[in-house]
Each structure stands twice: as C-alpha cells, then as structure tokens.
Amino acid sequence: MTTATASPHTKGERTRQTIVDHGVATAYRIGLGRLTIGELATSTGLSKSGLYAHFGSKETLQLAVLDEAATRFTDAVIRPALQAPRGEPRLRALFDRWVRSGTAREPGVCLFVKAATELDEQPGPVRDRLAAHHRALIATIETVVRTSDGGFRADADGRQVAADLYGVMLSFYLSHRLLRDSAAEHHARTTFEALLAALAPAPSPTCPDHATGNRP
C-alpha cells in the first residue's frame, strides 16, 4: 500500500489559503491598511520571502484578503438567503443571517465595515475592490426586491430598500460594537420590520358578496 503525497501545487494552495486565513483575522484586529507581509510572517511563522513568493506585494495580499472576506460573507449570508422563497422570506433571511454574523463577530463578514471607514479616503486598487464588493451586495438586495414575485409593492424601489437596509446594518454595527448597546439588535429588527411593512403590497379590493341575496 502506498501513500499518496500532495502535489507541490496543492501544497502551495493550502499554504496560500492558510496565509489568507491569517490575513483576514489579522486585518479584522489591526485594520486592513496595517496588514503587511512582515506582520503575517510573524503570525504564521513563515519567512517574508515565502510570503512574497505567494503574493509579491502588500497590495496583492490585501486584495486576496478582501476577496476571501467576500467569499465568507457570500457563504454565510447571501447564498443561504437566496435559497429562501422569493419576496419577504428571502429578504428576511438575508437580514437575519447578516445580523447573526455581526453578532457572532465573524472576521470575514465584519471586515467590510471596518475597511470601509479605513479606506474611504485611500484611493487605489484595494479601495476599488472594496467598493466593488459593497456594490455587489447592494445589487443583490435590489435583485431580491425586484424578483419578489408580487411579494412587495409593485412600485418598490430596490435601490432605496438596499440603502435603507444598509443604513439599518451600519447603525446596528455601531451600536453593537462601539456603544455596546444591549438593545442594538432589538432596534435593528424593529426598523427592519417597519421597512418590510412599507414594502407590503396593497390589499386587493373586496368584491361585494351577491350570494347572500341581500340587495340595497
């Protein structure tokens, strides 16, 4: 019986993934801008030359970390939510999973809020990539509203709903993380319910019941 050994390519991919995983956790703790190859060399036990072989530059490393964070958000929030029935159940599933990930302080999910305030005045490829990931989420929310199959008002504005939901979540993060407000989640859910109520389709007009035999 022989034991199969991993090819150098497979081993290299595993090493790269380990570095990126450390990168996500480190960026969540110290900020994406302070994430450097030297910082990761210390936390992973790898040499700087080894990290450069995988990424080549600090910028490439930061982009890889952002993409990994986006993948984690998609896996934890978006993809499961899109399995829910269209309309209110799907939007509610997205919101619930988003809140749950924030409450759990999942680094890959929460990194985007931290990085947004850190990079908003830092032009360059990393900021551009971060903005692209945020725009993709906004587009997803718009699509959820647009494809509700009658679950929302016919004139529902998906872009406005995305802006409102983003506002709810940013307020939740601020209250939950910085202010340590024990009512943060309650406030977020109350606001979300009001948002859903505003999206509800108008009730159909009732037809007079002629089966009773009553006549004016």
Rank of each mutant, 00 (worst) to 15 (best):
93 A>R: 15
83 Q>E: 14
163 A>R: 14
151 G>Q: 05
57 S>L: 02
71 T>I: 02
75 D>L: 08
102 G>Q: 06
17 Q>Y: 02
88 E>N: 00
22 H>P: 03
130 L>C: 06
123 P>Y: 07
148 S>A: 15
114 K>D: 08
99 V>M: 15
121 E>D: 14
213 G>S: 05
159 R>N: 09
131 A>Y: 10
134 H>F: 15
195 L>M: 12
181 D>R: 07
98 W>G: 07
98 W>L: 09
203 P>M: 11
25 A>H: 08
52 Y>H: 10
163 A>Q: 12
111 L>E: 00
22 H>M: 12
51 L>V: 04
182 S>R: 15
170 L>I: 08
80 P>C: 05
201 P>Q: 02
71 T>A: 12
40 L>T: 03
179 L>V: 00
19 I>T: 01
61 L>C: 01
155 D>Q: 09
210 H>V: 12
122 Q>E: 13
35 L>D: 01
16 R>D: 04
146 R>N: 09
214 N>T: 05
117 T>P: 00
14 R>C: 01
185 E>I: 00
200 A>T: 14
55 F>G: 00
134 H>D: 01
152 F>D: 00
70 A>N: 09
123 P>K: 09
158 G>T: 06
171 S>N: 13
156 A>V: 02
10 T>W: 10
133 H>I: 08
63 L>Y: 03
10 T>F: 11
29 R>S: 12
40 L>E: 06
112 F>T: 03
136 A>K: 13
54 H>L: 00
70 A>D: 10
151 G>M: 03
88 E>C: 00
92 R>L: 11
176 H>V: 01
147 T>E: 14
113 V>I: 08
95 F>Q: 14
84 A>S: 10
4 A>K: 08
115 A>K: 01
137 L>C: 06
66 L>P: 10
116 A>H: 05
148 S>E: 04
95 F>S: 13
168 V>T: 04
